[in-house]
């Protein structure tokens, strides 16, 4: 079972969670769908053949009139069903509702009384006020109770999240199983630089060791590295990637990473990637604690 990763404008989204995701992290989980994937996650998932890329712009075809007609029938039927159900429920639970007839009568009487009081007050104050403060008009008589005013019943409108149910959404022909295919189709270009290649390699290496990665930009690194699912466990490392053995690393950076890591109770992980051997070497930076 592969996951469709929906790509538009070089960004990757997950739109349905009915299939169980492999346990990669995602951001903004509290906000609901879509989940936005980090580019390294996309590259890993496609490389592992766990996911395919779907070009979302071309997968949304122009709907035919018949398709829209069919959709509209379903939509109207759904509303009719909802209204019927709500009316049934309303008639069953009438006694304890504030909409019961006795309550409505009472409310009407109260409003009428208030209106009369205002008129009397204005008359007492003088006729001149009438032209400026016209008495509130009597409320229009309610539509007779016998008519089931379907427009008055609030049914619920669902804003569809995914396009799965739309007949004009078709992933066929817009699905790419490999990064190369997606790249030549121009929908996905990551990784493009040496640095991005290194990031993908480090991400993959950490993932294969069983770590879970989340976004680390708030901690001064590429990723936060978790020993287990981020839902339940704290992260232990903040990782940065050095793209090659000759990539510059200023001593000040090491000091800053050490300081930040200590303040956030994490060790900083320097991940050095060697493009020649395709191996990753890890170093962790921590304060030595000599005061």
């Amino acid at each position: 079972m592969t996951i469709p990763i929906h790509v538009s404008h070089q960004r990757a989204f997950i739109w349905d969670v009915d299939r169980t995701l492999p346990h990669l992290s995602q951001q903004n989980v509290f906000l609901g769908l879509p989940l936005v994937l980090m580019p390294e996650e996309v590259v890993l998932l496609v490389d592992k053949q766990l996911a395919v890329l779907v070009d979302d712009l071309s997968a949304h075809r122009t709907p035919t009139a018949a398709q829209i007609e069919a959709w509209d029938q379903v939509w109207k039927k759904d509303i009719a069903q909802q209204v019927a159900r709500l009316e049934r429920e309303a008639s069953v639970g009438k006694e304890d509702r504030s909409m019961s007839e006795a309550a409505v009568e009472k409310r009407k009487a109260r409003e009428e009384k208030r209106r009369l009081a205002i008129i009397q007050k204005q008359q007492a104050e003088g006729e001149s006020a009438d032209s400026v403060f016209a008495p509130p008009p009597a409320p229009p008589p309610e539509s007779s109770a016998g008519q089931p005013a379907s427009s008055n019943i609030a049914y619920s409108v669902a804003v569809p999240t995914t396009s799965e149910e739309h007949a004009w959404y078709n992933q066929e022909g817009s699905t790419y199983a490999t990064l190369e295919a997606a790249r030549s189709a121009g929908i996905w270009s990551y990784p493009a630089t040496e640095e991005e290649v290194a990031k993908c390699a480090v991400f993959r290496d950490l993932w294969e060791q069983g770590y879970y990665m989340g976004g680390g930009s708030k901690f001064g690194g590429e990723w936060l590295v978790y020993p287990g699912d981020p839902l339940r466990y704290h992260s232990h490392f903040v990782a940065t990637v050095l793209a090659s053995p000759t990539a510059p690393l200023r001593p000040m950076e090491i000091v800053a990473h050490g300081r930040l890591g200590t303040a956030t109770k994490k060790a900083h992980l320097l991940c050095g990637y060697d493009p020649a051997t395709k191996k990753v070497a890890y170093f962790s930076v921590e304060w030595a604690g000599f005061g």
Partner: peptide, 18 residues
């Protein structure tokens, strides 16, 4: 019935970005 095609949030993301 010919008021256009209903859009899903997914389609809106694809359409409106950019």
């Amino acid at each position: 019935t010919t008021r256009g095609a209903p859009m899903s949030v997914q389609q809106a993301f694809a359409e409106m970005m950019g």
